[in-house]
Amino acid sequence: MMKNIMIITRALTYGGAERVAASLASYLTAYYNVDLVVIDGDKQSYHTTANTIYLGQSVIHKGKGINRILWFVNLYKKIIRLRKSKKYECVISFLTEPELMNALTSQFGKSITSIRNVRSSVVCGRIKKIRDKWVFFKMDGIVSLSENAKKDLVENYDVKPDKIRVIYNICDKEYIWDEISKGIIENDISEWLGSGKVFVTTGRLSEQKAQWHMIRAFAGVAKKHPDVKLAILGRGEQEEYLSNLIGELDMAEQIRVLGFKSNPYIYLSKAYCFLFSSVFEGLGNSIVEAMACGLPVISTDCNAGPRELLSPDSSLETKIDKIELAEYGILTPVCDGIHRSGNDALTSAEEELKKAIELMVENEAIYKNYKQKSTERGEQFDIESIVNQWISVIEQ
């Protein structure tokens, strides 16, 4: 008889961790009875074949003070009721609220949490750090998205190295190309994408992703090469700032924020090159998906992930202040994350990002090499290998 497994996440709307939770739940249904438990409502952007249980508690509207406490108490009651009634052999959590609930109910079965970022870069404050140390202590296992994220857990949260397993995200190339084959792009955007060399980026419009750095760098290239364009896919709290910055730079025709797309792959398939400007990461799953679509990649060398993906044989301690022509893509110095206007001069890191974009536009040999290398690297994140690693963590 198959074991009962719970995977718990915040929502199924537009976050990268949510997408991974949904896809992992689907793949594990071949081996376990899987319930995908979603804290928020039933709005769903990501498909899963697993049985889905919606708890109907808005993550955004937790409230403050006593209302916030009551929100967590109510959620705790729902999770503990599920763990008692279904007798899950293992519960896997994605993101902070789910992992807290997983830790609080860990006496009812194995508890594993997936760490999606370098935690010390995301969570600040002494109280939160104490909370996280306790959560990690309660876990039977921790799955880290990258070696650097694992290093952070060991050095900053006193987690024993043998408790952590590094497992990269699955890249389902067959699913991606199926989505591309049936994808539809709005007519006006399709025409815009179909003309010139279109660079693309995907991800939440957030402080972490720092898309304003690529906008500022890209504008300099676009003035020199009027046929290049930048498509930004995603939504988030930085959308207004990004739109205003594009206006200040007079780049409305060449740079567009296209919003969240449930099928980003059709847009990736129409693009020329993928850009990534994060100031920190867990891995950079968008890079892997871009590779699966055959796109060459330019990424900041942020902590953590891009170096592991683009230069896997180099030291994780490497720091750069100039562009690096890595094995599988171009790495650029990490930007400072500071908001600037369109009138401010480019920072040294933005200048290097600009050089990398120009190199991809102007040097056909380099472009073709990285296009081929991206395809090769994308093949290394196959479903069977990654799923088997998850199974080994569940079963150990």
Rank of each mutant, 00 (worst) to 15 (best):
E239I: 12
A231V: 04
Q208D: 08
G236I: 04
G234R: 00
V200R: 02
K173C: 07
K182P: 00
P161W: 04
G194P: 00
I189Q: 10
W212S: 15
E191V: 08
I232F: 06
K160Y: 08
M214T: 13
D188K: 05
S206R: 00
W192H: 14
I170C: 06
K209E: 04
K224Y: 04
F218D: 06
G203E: 06
F218K: 12
E237F: 00
A222S: 10
I176N: 01
K209C: 04
K173I: 14
I215E: 00
V166G: 04
Q211W: 07
I167H: 08
K163M: 06
L233D: 02
I185E: 04
W177A: 01
T202S: 14
S195V: 15
K197L: 14
C171F: 02
G220C: 08
S195M: 04
M214C: 12
I170T: 13
F218P: 12
P161E: 10
M214A: 14
L205C: 08
I184P: 14
E191F: 00
M214P: 09
G234Q: 01
M214I: 12
V228D: 00
E191D: 14
G203N: 06
A210P: 00
I164V: 15
I180V: 15
V198H: 02
G183F: 14
V228I: 10
D178M: 13
L233R: 00
I185S: 11
H213S: 09
I167R: 08
I215V: 15
I170P: 00
V198M: 06
A219I: 05
K224V: 08
L230C: 05
R165T: 15
L205Q: 03
E207S: 12
I189G: 09
T201C: 14
Y175G: 15
A219V: 12
L230W: 03
T202M: 11
E239D: 13
S206A: 02
A210S: 13
W212N: 15
I215A: 00
Y175M: 15
E179L: 12
H225A: 06
E186W: 03
L233I: 05
V221I: 09
G220W: 03
E186L: 11
S195D: 12
E191R: 14
G183E: 10
K197P: 05
R204E: 15
K182I: 03
E186R: 07
I164G: 07
D162H: 13
S181E: 12
K229A: 06
D172Q: 07
D227M: 10
W192I: 13
E237G: 10
I184M: 10
I164D: 09
Q208S: 03
G234A: 01
Y168T: 06
T201G: 03
C171R: 03
D162W: 05
K223Y: 13
W177F: 14
S195P: 13
P161M: 03
N187S: 09
Q238E: 13
R235W: 05
K173L: 12
I180L: 01
F218Y: 07
F199S: 11
I185H: 08
V198P: 01
S190F: 07
G194S: 05
I184F: 11
E240V: 08
E186V: 02
K209G: 02
G234L: 01
L230I: 04
